[in-house]
Structures are given as structure tokens and as C-alpha cells.
Computed example of a mutant assay.
Amino acid sequence: MESLRRNFFNGSQCNKRKITWIKWTMTLASKKNGELGISSLYALNRALLFKWVWRFISRDNSLWCRLILSMHGSKLPSSSPFRYSTWLSIIREIHSLKDRGVDLVSHCRIHVGNGLRTNFWKEVWIGDNPLCVLFPRIFALETNKDSSVAVKLSSVTSSLRRPVRGGSESSQLSLLQEYIEGTILSSLEDSGFGILKMRKVSFEFKDV
């Protein structure tokens, strides 16, 4: 479809090709940059694919979401027990965008309710980055790296493999405790990812 549109704008008909006066990538560029601002079907398709991923991680409780959860689990899969998996193909496209500098999932943050379904260390539920990235020395001491928010809020140090020593470890522990201080859990389930402010990304769409 992208190729047909390109030929249409270039004035090509059947087997007759005309001179291309402007690159197709420039045709797709926005009017703010002095180009035509023709929407890219490639970009639109990737946006629609990510909408399915967003629905999955937001746990919208739809029949589709419950089916994917029962078949593939609660995490974004890197492999599938099924030979042909449409869901895994969608995830691969999202990872492909990440490799090209467009990490959409990193701009999502969980709205914590009771904290039972949210990973304390690896998921973005407070601030703009996972706690394992902000406090790597404490995360290295963690024996249960899949602890939920509900479990860790009761005692941050309960599952560490040894007591925290002085220096950077002690400093990071104090900062971590201060960072999560004031977090209040509720009786609601964790759900509803919010979209964080996204930085402007330069992305070149290749012709299909």
C-alpha cells in the first residue's frame, strides 16, 4: 500500500515511471519541516500495534486481554509455546522499534492500587525509571527480584541476602526509603498505565 501511494504521488501509471523529484521519506515529513506531511501507513500500523500492547499492560479486563493472559502469562513474552503466535509477532515489532530508539513501553507507568501485581524493582510505578536502575547496589543484594510492591513496602530490607554496609550501599538504602516514603496502597487492583511525557524522537520510515 505504501508503494502504491508513492507511485500515485510520483504520477507513475502502469509500467510508465516518471522522475521522482522528492524522496518519499521527505514527503512523509511534517509540514513544520517544510515537507508535505503525508501520513505514513508504516507509522500508523506500528501505532495500532502498540495500542494492543498498551491494552495488555493496562489490564482492561476485556475478553481479549484475559485470553492473552491465560495463553502467554502476565509479562510481555520473548518466546511462545505456540508455533505461530500473532501476539509474539506484535511484541517483536515493539522490540524492533526499541532497537531503533523508540522505546514506547518505557513511557508507561503503572497506577498502583494494592501493589500485588506490580514488580517493585523492575516496573515503573513511581518516578520515571525502575527502582533497579535508580538503586543498583540495593537491587544487587535482593534475593527476590520479582517481589511485588505490596511485599517490599512492608520491609525493604527483609529479603536482602546480607545487611547493608556503609558507603554507597547505606546511602542508596536511605535514598530508596525516602523515595518510596508516603506511598499508600489501596484495595483496588494495579491497572491503568499512564503515558509519561515523551521526548521528541527522530524516526525515519523506510519504504515498504
Rank of each mutant, 00 (worst) to 15 (best):
S85W: 08
S168W: 06
F82K: 09
S85E: 08
S58P: 06
L69F: 12
C14Y: 07
C65P: 01
V105M: 06
E2W: 03
I91M: 01
S30C: 08
V53F: 08
E178L: 15
V102M: 14
P77G: 10
F135N: 04
L196T: 03
I91K: 00
D60A: 10
S62V: 03
S79K: 10
I68W: 04
K200G: 01
S12E: 09
K122C: 08
P136Q: 03
L97W: 06
I90D: 07
P77Q: 04
E181H: 14
T118G: 01
M198Y: 00
L176Y: 06
K31P: 04
E204F: 06
I90S: 06
P136L: 08
E142W: 06
L4Y: 08
L153Y: 06
S96D: 12
E93R: 08
K16S: 09
K75T: 14
I184T: 09
M198I: 09
I19H: 13
A29Q: 13
L188W: 06
G73C: 03
M198W: 05
R46T: 02
I68F: 02
L176P: 12
H95N: 15
S187F: 03
N129I: 13
F9W: 15
I110N: 12
F139M: 01
G11E: 10
E35F: 13
L69W: 04
R161S: 14
T27V: 15
Y179T: 01
L104Y: 02
W52Y: 10
D207M: 07
V53H: 09
L131M: 04
M26L: 14
I57S: 07
L88Y: 07
Q177M: 13
S62A: 04
N10T: 07
N10K: 08
F9R: 09
C14R: 12
F120P: 07
V133C: 09
P130T: 00
L173D: 14
E35D: 10
F139S: 01
T143H: 02
